[in-house]
Design a protein around this nucleic acid. Structure first.
Lengths: 207, 207, 207, 207
DNA sequence: AATGAATGAGGTTTCATTCAT
DNA sequence: TATGAATGAAACCTCATTCAT
């Protein structure tokens, strides 16, 4: 009985288990993206997945665990998408450009996941009321890479002198702002949006 | 800002009524700022206000109405704070600088209200699942002014050619990003943060 | 809103509230006496009281609180029944006799309450698994009085030398044993049972 | 002690089967002794036994069957412990003394089993709400022997005239009272407790 | 011989809202 | 003007049990 014996079940044992987890996670992503965090109940998620509510409790330690794992999964997914493209560039300016473009590219090709992770991260809280995640562009691992890029640019003399944390936060927020805009106005062209943001932050950073 | 189709027949604008509304609104702001949107129940709000739950239903048309009015009130509050400072400047570049600095100044001096409005706006949804507010920096009235400033700057030849909507959204998101950073790291100096953002967006906009 | 504002609501405010509490407590006593501790759900209790489940949560802090209050109430009830009869006697031997007889008298005239308190006390546990009450005849207040009686008898030279705690526990258990016997064999004559127990413990204690 | 109408066709008495049953029974005893009857779920028992929940259903006809068999097994165990010591005595007075001392001796050397059987017997109920077992010292087989001892003592003129059922119940309850006391106060010396009880009941019974 | 998978019923509790007073 | 009282729905979670493999 895997899900109960281990508090943090990593390596899945069976194919069917992995399929079910996928199914539940996908349904949860769909639900959160559609109705938001507060309205995304286990009942709705189970309905979307066409399974019984208790199956979710069987595969996950509870709602919190499910949402935590979704965030972890999507973060990993985003990183797997961005990292190779980032690795192809060496100069900070190029890496910043790729970071922005690749993130928006990911959002464009993974709409629901992007909305879901933004929604959960912005609302999921611990019992003491504090946010569970470093609310979108401050301390999370991906933004950490952004800070590294900015520092590199300053070290190499490509970038002017600014506070890397502030700029990283601003870039991250700009990206989720693009997503939010796109959600409300689906006709917006995210590629063009990327071009605008790249220009904006090149001007804002270059020496 | 009373809802037009209110079923409760009550005399508007009595002094005692205004006091009660204030009390409720303040308690709701405190609660939302402390525990977040999803956990801010009417029971908690009533507890914080030391009144009975049903008083809220008496003065507001329901939870949605209460939150709507809170957002409207805080938006008006922010605008009343920013507008006169904005009016003192004529050049677009100065107006943008003042917009950024004044907003962060407001946040610094109205911490709870700022957190509350950011929280509500980011989570409050209609019954169909769509966000009730134009999620922070897209279509709301205050950001509308920002767009106007940017357009003016382009018209006057002060600003380079960019998409004013994209830039307005980015500025707005940068400001809420500052707030979020401050919430997580109270030691952050918001005045310095303002200086950083002003420099950033001057470089990003100037011709 | 009393039940929510105060964690331990003592003095009831309104007549109707007291009536509802009575109704709920009585229904809970009936339910526990009939189906036992483990099967006594809030749904069943609410059904018995012909009210909605949520009314129970309105008047009590939860199931644990309800059961705690029931035990406290019945203990107080028993004590109010026994104490005046005890006060009429001065010699330890007489007080012990009255203690036994009065307790069985109470059980006989308050069957359901007696069964309920015995059932709850024997099963109600804290979250750490330990029993909430000093399981019937060890440390509770009423048994404390019994210990006092036994000590007095030894001090006065009426009673032989024995461990008062052991004897008090044995008397208490004998009394709940009578109740359990009566539950299973309703034809048993509790008055005669009392006579037997009085004789037994007089022989067991006298010098 | 297999239920006669078992739906699962399985070969009785294989070595591996016995081992599994032991494992399950022991885990159930441990669980019940630790968390009580109401909280002892099959999931917890299976966890304690480090097996899958469904194994329990494979070896037992359900939770009720498991608990029934546990009680039967422990009763048999107790009897096997007491009976030879009882057989070494012929006079009723000695047999009563041995009965008390041996039972407490068993409890002392089989703490968990004793707690478990006391717990189950005091809570396990049929679907109609009635207790499954003659709650601790009334009609069960072991107490039956106690009644026989008491009757013998009266027949032989060793004991005074009393109701043997009442006295047997009282002795049995006194013994579980000792166990309950020991559970709450592990520092209590059960041998001394036995001495106290032996003295008590010798005085209570002798002519 | 064994179990992973799944379920539906039922557990307690919280929710926003209504209504009589 | 105010609220105590009540409710039904829905929240998350645990339960014992079944079944195909």
């Amino acid at each position: 009985m895997r899900p109960e014996s281990s508090p943090n079940p990593r390596k899945p044992h069976s194919i069917i288990e992995e399929a079910r987890r996928r199914q539940i996670v996908d349904a949860a992503i769909t639900t959160v993206a559609k109705v938001g965090y507060a309205q995304a109940s286990l009942a709705q998620i189970a309905d979307n997945a066409r399974i019984s509510k208790s199956v979710i409790s069987y595969y996950f330690d509870g709602k919190d665990d499910l949402l935590d794992q979704i965030v972890a999964e999507i973060y990993a997914d985003i990183w797997a998408f961005i990292e190779p493209r980032l690795a192809a560039e060496s100069r900070a300016r190029d890496r910043l450009r790729v970071y922005i473009a690749a993130t928006l590219d990911y959002m464009r090709s993974h709409r629901k996941r992007s909305i879901a992770v933004m929604t959960i991260v912005g609302s999921h809280r611990r019992e003491d009321g504090t946010l569970r995640f470093a609310s979108l562009g401050a301390d999370d691992s991906i933004t950490g890479e952004l800070v590294a890029i900015l520092r590199q640019g300053q070290r190499d003399g490509e970038f002017r002198d600014f506070d890397p944390q502030v700029l990283a936060t601003t870039v991250s927020r700009a990206l989720t702002g693009a997503l939010a805009t796109w959600v409300m106005h689906p006709e917006v062209d995210l590629e063009q949006y990327a071009t605008e943001l790249v220009a904006l932050f090149e001007l804002a950073t270059h020496r």
